[in-house]
Design a protein around this nucleic acid. Structure first.
Length: 511
RNA sequence: GGUCCGUUCGUCUAGGGGUUAGGACACCAGAUUUUCAUUCUGGUAACAGGGGUUCGAUUCCCCUACGGACUACCA
């Protein structure tokens, strides 16, 4: 019987979670749910020098906003706690020591200066890849070159050391990637990676393999930047004796810059004017601010839908998927191989689709929340307004931005349009229109329109000759939803007042 | 430089030995409309190049080019 599927998302708390990381989390989540398995979050904070306060909380907040539910994590707990690698520190050394005992790893005492010197020497000698490996380790200070008692003496005296993996000199390493198929790498391309650092912490490579094994991870879904070190991880599983339960790997294509070369980076967002982080973030060290999708007005389900389609597709024509539908349709086999250029236009389109699909009552809340102090609005009226506006906005905050004139009379008019559309004849019609508003049995859009049409006929004018001018008079701007509907919402008194004001202000254009 | 991965419209992609190479975003045009937007209809636009294999290659293989990742006591 197959093992229960268990996947993990394992970010480092070194800053705001990048949008590419969010997508990785989404894929992990979709796969776990699809397979009826579990998803856990593990914090990989083995590099104490890069720890950023608040970054871990940011990760949790981001995933929660996206609707990704964790089964196990530092805050949810779980059978394999702790889920923070810094808290698992005592676990790793034993495995490193076991590797040393089995002859697959060794102590190394080289200082940073000595390592630099070695690399410089190799570079000068035109060695293609200067690295600490099967050949160069013979020239360095380690337990393979030093006499046994000397090694013991250094260890006992507390001299700093690292433990390095003893990568074989000539060996073909194969690994099967669920997205790319078989990948072959020669061991000579891999250096003797540090497993335990001199500060007593494991490196990513060791901690990752140990934890994935201990936590029963069955599938490792991560970014393509890990592909080159995947063969090293295979070696680790083998030397630790865990090859038979080694997880399957799936290396995701990277998110690329919308223009130019390279992968999407933090700077691109600022430069091109779109967020690269899910949530707003302020760097605690530099106070530098970065904008997030949530605050920019993106709806989480549309955002997730958009992200899921960056590198994956269901093979059908359907583009709009709820989280449940994504889970149902998801499969790793349908993830693409090539890097994906990021396109914010598509994200905006998704947002529009999701926004319009929401009921007016819900959209009305966006408007109500954005209302400045002192401006009142009933829910009923807000619903009418958003109903009129929903086809024209991209973000929730657009409702207020675009609909200010429902609440405040225009203080200025689009002069350009006024100059072109305002006329003495139109002004005369508006005056009659204003004066006869009282005769309406009920102040509705339909009745208002009928009245206007009657007046126009009486004056020998067509509707197209005055509507733009009337729109300017009432809203100040040249574009918007159905003007009669606007009139109905702002009401009779307000309509009369605005016409009176416009008649005066725009009189210079009457000719 | 070395190692590994990749390459279908501008972008995200479907497809896969014989297709008018399909869809979506964006863009353009027309229709509708009191304006703008929406909506509807239509349009421009792609298999990186060269060799094979084959009756036939965009699809399979090789090479080249280009792109990307990695090349730390970072993850």
């Amino acid at each position: 019987m197959a093992r229960e599927v268990r996947v993990r998302f394992a970010p480092s708390p070194t800053g705001a979670l990048h949008i590419g990381g969010v997508r990785t989390a989404v894929y992990n989540y979709l796969f776990a749910k699809k397979m009826g398995g579990k998803m856990l979050l593990r914090i990989e904070d083995t590099d104490q020098t890069r720890f950023v306060p608040g970054a871990e909380q940011y990760i949790f907040d981001s995933l929660a906003w996206c609707g990704i539910e964790l089964d196990e994590s530092p805050v949810h707990g779980g059978p394999h706690a702790p889920y923070r690698q810094s808290e698992r520190k005592p676990i790793y050394l034993d495995y490193a020591l076991k590797l040393v005992a089995d002859g697959h790893a060794y102590y190394a005492f080289d200082t940073a200066a000595e390592l630099d010197e070695m690399r410089d020497r190799l570079k000068a000698a035109k060695v293609a890849t200067p690295q600490y490996n099967a050949i160069t380790r013979a020239t360095m200070s380690n337990s393979l070159t030093l006499p046994e008692d000397e090694v013991k003496r250094r260890l006992d005296s507390g001299e700093p050391y690292v433990i390095r993996l003893k990568v074989p000199r000539k060996e073909e390493i194969r690994l099967k990637d669920m997205i790319r198929g078989w990948v072959l790498v020669h061991s000579s391309a891999i250096d003797d990676k540090v497993l335990m650092k001199s500060d007593g912490m494991p490196t990513y490579h060791l901690a990752n393999i140990v934890d994935d094994h201990l936590m029963g991870i069955t599938h490792v879904i991560r970014g393509e930047e890990w592909l080159p070190s995947a063969p090293l991880h295979v070696l680790l599983y083998r030397y630790l004796g865990w090859e038979d339960t080694m997880p399957e790997f799936a290396h995701l294509p990277l998110l690329l810059k919308p223009d130019g070369n390279g992968k999407l980076s933090k700077r691109d967002g600022d430069k091109l004017g779109f967020p690269v982080f899910p949530l707003n973030w302020t760097d605690p060290a530099t106070a530098e601010k970065s904008s997030g999708y949530r605050e920019a007005g993106y709806l989480p389900d549309g955002f997730v839908n958009f992200l899921a389609f960056l590198g994956w597709n269901p093979g059908t024509q359907q583009e709009i998927f709820s989280m449940d539908e994504l889970v149902e349709a998801f499969s790793i086999e349908r993830i693409g191989k090539s890097g994906t250029r990021f396109d914010i236009q598509k994200a905006r389109w998704y947002n529009e689709q999701y926004l319009r699909a929401k009921p007016d009552a819900e959209l009305a809340q966006y408007l109500l929340e954005a209302l400045p102090d002192g401006i009142a609005c009933s829910e009923e009226r807000a619903e009418k307004i958003v109903g009129l506006m929903k086809e024209r906005v991209t973000f929730p905050q657009d409702f207020w931005k675009e609909a200010v004139y429902f609440f405040e009379a225009p203080t200025e008019y689009n002069e350009q349009v006024a100059a072109k559309k305002w006329s003495a004849a139109a002004a005369d019609v508006f005056l009659q229109f204003k004066n006869e508003l009282d005769s309406l049995p009920e102040f509705t859009a339909d009745n208002v329109k009928t009245l206007l049409l009657q007046i126009l006929e009486r004056n020998g004018l067509k509707i197209g000759q005055v509507m733009q001018a009337l729109r300017i008079a009432l809203t100040g701007v040249e574009a918007g939803p159905d003007l009669m509907a606007i009139i109905e919402i702002i009401g009779k008194n307000e309509t009369e007042q605005r016409i009176t004001a416009a008649l005066e202000r725009l009189a210079p254009y009457a000719k």
